[in-house]
Design a protein around this nucleic acid. Structure first.
Length: 705
RNA sequence: GGGCGAUUAGCUCAGUUGGUAGAGCAACCCGUUUACACCGGGAAGGUCACAGGUUCGAGUCCUGUAUCGCCCACCA
């Protein structure tokens, strides 16, 4: 009888081995594709290694990793370890995201707690403070990614504010300008009065509200509005040209009327965008604070005037209401309208949707502000083609539909943000006075053009730079890495950032490099709590993956995140399920203990080998086709129900099984390694005659091609 | 308003191209004969939302209904 090493006398204790194992892997250098051992064919000739690349979605360096991070690290690590063992030249590029607005919001909350405010700080000081905050979070976060077992190449780690990333972003901005796809224009933007910045459409959410709907007398008309506080400057009344009720009024006709702060002159406008069914079929317009009104004003070349300031207070145009917060002002204004007999009726049950800031929930105040916009349609068109002709494949099919639908209805993208934490926009302006006409001249460049020029104080939307991540990280256009590893193999990320990030990467990648940035898009769903509720701090149901890892072991956490989790659908993370896989880890541990106590002599039983090889082939196919949840489940059942429960029991007292047991153990460890890397590596080190790491062992099934 | 999805055991969910329903947890009975009590054995539990259709055969494909959910959108 052989003896299993002493460590097998106690149950498997992940906390004792994981740190050491990770250190061994990292020090081996094999996370770096340049150091991988050469593969030789049967004739001893060196085999050309096919690249396999994943760019890790860079976690926001503003806090701890959450369950979603643990999920993507696990999925990607499984693919990387699988392909590495299959002899591919595997590169997994880790990163960290400065996460512009997101991080600034986190930092502002911190400032608030300290009784400070960013609006009282110098931009440079604020920037420096957030940088320190971000960098310390970044190194903290890197430790957590290691704890989850990520076999990524730390020597190639990229931060979204690295110089070469910024340079790439600047080049793209300039190219967009040169190609006529960039414009600066006063447009209605989504303005958050709390955060004092504009936001893209994706950064707003909708809330259904029941508000009062006021029917106001406007000269001979009745207009309906939910926002009387915006109506001070309304001097145009608009109706549909075909509306018979108002046929007697003609375009441009003027009339006098008594309004909130006195008599005004109004003008009739006919516009086909008016819905005759809604309200009274007549409305006045507030072009500065409403997108529809803005479009009407633009079509008819009407002036527009700001009524509400950037902090949500009324401007002098409001007369006696100047300086009031719009919320407080509404009731007072209605009171005054009522006293003047201008309120016809009030509908108390008007239900509508209002846009709110996705961070603070405050109502968005549409404001006109000159911003940088990208004309998205030409970019989207290329992306649509790439999806349709299969250059990029989307998992799953329903996400492909969602993506295409969004791309087909794309809107121009506002990439200016009025925050300091981000990449400064490389644009300079000066006003010129040509022929008595004031106008603004812009230059797109990083260097100061000289006297009289002022730099745009805004920064880029983070997603504009993130959208260039795959080619920026790989050193487009000249580096060897770019030539070797681009297009990358898989983009694996959350379905919730399909539009924010994946779609933008696809469009900008195609635009800059002419190639798709990734071949496959693998989207995972949201990680919810055991009951299927969204995790949130306020509910107190947030499950920290690191705590789970400490309690049950990283391998158990990984299995719990994978099994039963089909791509694209949400996953409920139940600690009890993780507990089940902790038991599985111990089961494998004890299988090893038993097998190591046997002599490994004799013949390998061919029917058991064939049976195993069939499972191995099956599992291989599952991983190749991204059914990793199924591969993990199959291994679980083979190892427990077949190998341990039947084969092992059958072998007791029969020494001729020795070689078979070793064969099955060794190869099971290989198959399990991508899923449960720590445990399998630890056992591998205890097998006789094993001097190399399991990390770079050869996968038991040949690659398909 | 438009789009996408879900409905399978008490709970949470799998079920790859259509071929007599599966897991984890919970609940029930039994068992400490040296791999493992982080265990073993056994039994129980589902008209696969509903109604039609295609098929020799449907949880799986098609149509409709109901309920739930998600995403997108400038209705005053």
């Amino acid at each position: 009888m052989s003896e299993a090493p002493d460590k097998f006398n106690t149950p498997y204790q992940p906390q004792n081995v994981e740190g050491e194992i990770y250190k061994k892997w990292e020090e081996s250098g094999f996370f770096n594709p340049d150091n991988l051992p050469l593969r030789l064919d049967a004739q001893g000739k060196q085999v050309e290694m096919e690249p396999f690349t994943i760019i890790m979605p860079p976690p926001n360096a503003n806090g701890s990793l959450h369950a979603g991070h643990a999920l993507f690290v696990t999925v990607q690590d499984i693919l990387m370890r699988f392909e590495r063992m299959r002899g591919k030249k595997t590169l997994w590029v880790p990163g960290a995201d400065h996460a512009g607005f997101e991080t600034q919001v986190v930092y502002e909350k911190k400032l608030e707690k300290e009784g400070r405010s960013r609006f009282e700080m110098q931009a440079d000081d604020l920037y420096k403070e957030i940088m320190d905050f971000t960098l310390s979070n970044k190194s903290f976060m890197e430790g957590q990614i290691r704890q989850l077992g990520a076999s990524c190449d730390w020597s190639r780690e990229v931060f979204t504010l690295d110089e070469r990333v910024i340079d790439t972003v600047y080049d793209t901005f300039k190219k967009l300008n040169d190609d006529g796809l960039l414009y600066r224009a006063p447009r209605i933007v989504n303005w958050c009065p709390k955060h004092q910045t504009s936001l893209s459409n994706l950064e707003t959410e909708r809330e259904t509200r029941t508000d009062k709907f006021y029917y106001l007398k406007y000269g001979p008309f009745t207009i309906a509005t939910a926002r009387p506080e915006t109506k001070f400057g309304d001097k145009y009344v608009v109706m549909h040209p075909d509306d018979k009720r108002y046929a007697q009024y003609s375009q441009g006709q003027q009339f006098e009327l008594e309004w909130i702060n006195g008599p005004i002159t109004a003008t009739v406008i006919k516009d086909e965008s008016i819905d005759m069914e809604l309200g009274t079929g007549v409305m006045t317009i507030t072009p500065w604070h409403d997108p529809i009104d803005f479009d009407i004003a633009k079509r008819h070349n009407l002036p527009y005037e700001q009524v509400i300031d950037w902090r949500g207070k009324l401007l002098p145009i409001a007369g006696e209401f100047e300086g009031m917060n719009i919320k407080d002002a509404r009731a007072k204004i209605v009171e005054k309208l009522q006293s003047k007999g201008l309120v016809e009726k009030i509908d108390e049950t008007y239900s509508h949707e209002v846009p709110v800031c996705y961070k603070c929930g405050r109502e968005i105040e549409p404001q006109v502000r000159p911003q940088w916009f990208i004309s998205m349609q030409p970019l989207a068109q290329k992306a649509i083609e790439a999806v349709k002709n299969g250059d990029v494949r989307v998992l799953t099919e329903n996400h492909e539909k969602i993506l295409l639908h969004w791309l087909e209805n794309i809107q121009d993208w506002n990439i200016s943000r009025q925050i300091v934490w981000g990449i400064p926009i490389p644009a300079w302006s000066r006003s010129t006075d040509a022929h008595g006409k004031q106008s603004e001249e812009w230059k797109i460049q990083v260097e100061d053009p000289g006297d009289g020029w002022t730099r745009d104080p805004d920064t880029f939307d983070t997603w504009f730079s993130s959208g260039q991540w795959p080619f920026a990280t790989l050193g487009y256009p000249d580096s060897n890495d770019f030539k070797t590893f681009y297009p990358t193999s898989v983009m694996e990320t959350g379905a919730d950032i399909l539009f924010f990030w994946v779609a933008r990467m696809l469009m900008l990648g195609l635009y800059r490099t002419g190639k798709v940035p990734f071949r496959d898009i693998y989207l995972h769903g949201l990680v919810r709590d055991a009951k299927g509720q969204k995790m949130s701090k306020s509910k107190g149901n947030v499950i920290s993956p690191l705590e789970i890892s400490n309690e049950y072991g990283t391998d158990a956490l990984r299995m719990g995140l994978i099994v039963g989790n089909t791509p694209g659908t949400d996953l409920n993370l139940d600690p009890r399920k993780i507990g089940a896989y902790k038991k599985f880890a111990n089961k494998i541990w004890n299988i090893a203990r038993f097998v190591l106590s046997q002599e490994h002599d004799g013949e390998i039983k061919s029917e058991l080998k064939d049976e195993f090889d069939a499972i191995a082939a099956d599992v291989t196919k599952d991983i190749e086709e991204y059914r990793i949840y199924m591969a993990a489940d199959k291994l679980y059942h083979y190892v427990w129900d077949r190998f341990a429960a039947e084969i092992l029991e059958e072998s007791k007292g029969k020494p001729e099984y020795g070689a078979t047991l070793y064969y099955l153990l060794e190869n099971s460890l290989k198959l399990l390694h991508p899923f449960m890397p720590f445990l399998t590596e630890e056992i591998w080190g205890s097998l006789p005659n094993k001097s190399t790491l399991l990390l770079i062992e050869t996968w038991p099934v040949n690659a398909r091609n």
